[in-house]
Structures are given as structure tokens and as C-alpha cells.
Simulated scan of single mutants.
Amino acid sequence: MAKLFFRYAAMNAGKSTALLQVAHNYEERGHRVRIFTAQLDDRYGRGYVTSRLGPQRAAEVFTPQTDFLALTQADPGIACLLVDEAQFLSKSQVHALHEIAHLRNLPAICYGLRTDFRGELFPGSATLLALADEMDEMKTICDCGRKATMNMRVDESNRKVTEGAQVEIGGNARYRAVCGRCFRQAA
């Protein structure tokens, strides 16, 4: 029986790298996958899953209007759905991925952040935490050496930002993966 998976972590834990490896493993064995990433994420150009290590691969983009049920019904030959930047999924899209796994026997593996820069759940992540059959926390470390579990937004002077829109696309110049202590101690 297929499952809905949620593999989450703070930034820079290797989520995209892991997704690319899973896609490679399926395809090396002759299975076809469909890879999706959020249209919002344009750090490396729209429609690409890109690892900070260098590997990059074209992917389909999802928007709030993307209908995963219709897409999979029209394409019965796929073996797995892979979703990067899953925190940007809507609640209804996560419900659709859960249905796809359980009623169409098609695994859906989602990779994303659990929380935003304020320590609050993204809507997609909250629904994945509620519905995922399996959840795996991927690990990365804080500058202090502890496990990083938080995403801290920083300004041009590397100071913690505590207000603003939940979604602001950015990489290492805009965010840092930190432990809970460093998150709370940052001014």
C-alpha cells in the first residue's frame, strides 16, 4: 500500500538533494516519476529542483490551482510523485496527495520546511503533519553545533527579522538554519 510521506527539516538540510536521489533511484529501475516544485521558488529559475551541491533537474511547477488528482488520473504510468517546497502546498492539495496515495496506490513523497521564520507552521506543512503516513526529520546543524530546527530570517546586517510576510523567497543571504537556543537568543 502506498503512503504519503513528509520529509522535513530546517533550511540547508539536503531536502532537494534527497528528492533528486529518490527520483534517480526510481528511474534507474525503469520507473517514471513526476517531480513538482513551487512556482513561488525562483531562486534558481522557475521549474527546477536544485541542490546547493549543484545537481539540478527540471520539474513541473505547482500553484494553488494545481489539481494533483486530475494530473495523476490523466497519467496512469507514473510510479511516484515527488514534491519539493511542500510547505507551499495548500491544505486541499495535501488532502489530494493523501487520497492519491491511499486510493490510487501511488506514493507521494513531500519535502519541505516545517516552520517559517517566526516558528509558525506553514499551511501545507501543518496539513502534512496531520495526514502523512510517515514523517522523517532530516538533520542539519546550527553554527553553534547543535541540531538546527528553526529557520531564522536575517536582514542585510545579519540581524534576526521578526516581522513580515510569511513567505519571502531567499537563500543563505536571507535565512539561517539555527537551533532553538540560537533562535531565542538572537536579538
Rank of each mutant, 00 (worst) to 15 (best):
M1V: 10
M1W: 05
F6E: 01
R7H: 14
A9G: 05
A9W: 00
A10K: 01
N12P: 02
A13E: 01
K15Q: 03
K15W: 00
S16W: 00
T17R: 08
L19W: 00
Q21G: 04
Q21V: 06
Q21T: 08
V22L: 07
V22E: 00
A23H: 02
Y26D: 00
Y26V: 01
E28P: 00
R29Q: 15
G30R: 04
R32P: 00
R34Q: 12
R34H: 09
I35Q: 06
T37Q: 02
A38G: 14
L40T: 13
D42T: 15
Y44T: 14
G45R: 11
G47H: 09
T50E: 03
S51L: 07
R52I: 05
R52M: 07
L53V: 04
G54A: 09
P55Y: 02
Q56H: 10
R57P: 01
A58K: 15
A59C: 06
V61F: 07
F62D: 02
T63Y: 11
P64R: 05
P64Y: 05
D67K: 12
L69F: 09
A70G: 08
A70N: 10
T72P: 06
D75S: 12
D75T: 09
A79Q: 00
L81Y: 07
V83I: 15
D84E: 12
D84P: 05
E85V: 08
K91E: 14
K91Q: 13
A96H: 14
H98D: 14
E99C: 09
A101M: 09
A101G: 12
H102E: 13
H102I: 06
L103H: 14
R104A: 13
A108K: 01
A108C: 15
I109G: 01
C110H: 04
G112K: 04
L113F: 09
R114Q: 07
R114I: 00
D116Q: 12
R118N: 13
L121W: 01
F122G: 02
P123S: 05
P123E: 11
G124Y: 07
T127L: 07
L128C: 05
M135P: 04
M135L: 14
E137C: 05
E137R: 15
M138K: 08
K139Y: 03
T140W: 01
I141E: 11
I141P: 01
G145V: 09
R146S: 10
T149I: 12
M152T: 04
V154I: 15
D155Y: 14
N158G: 09
V161N: 06
V161L: 11
E163N: 11
G164V: 12
A165H: 12
A165V: 11
Q166A: 13
G170A: 11
G171H: 08
N172A: 15
A173H: 11
C179I: 02
R181A: 10
R181V: 08
Q185C: 09
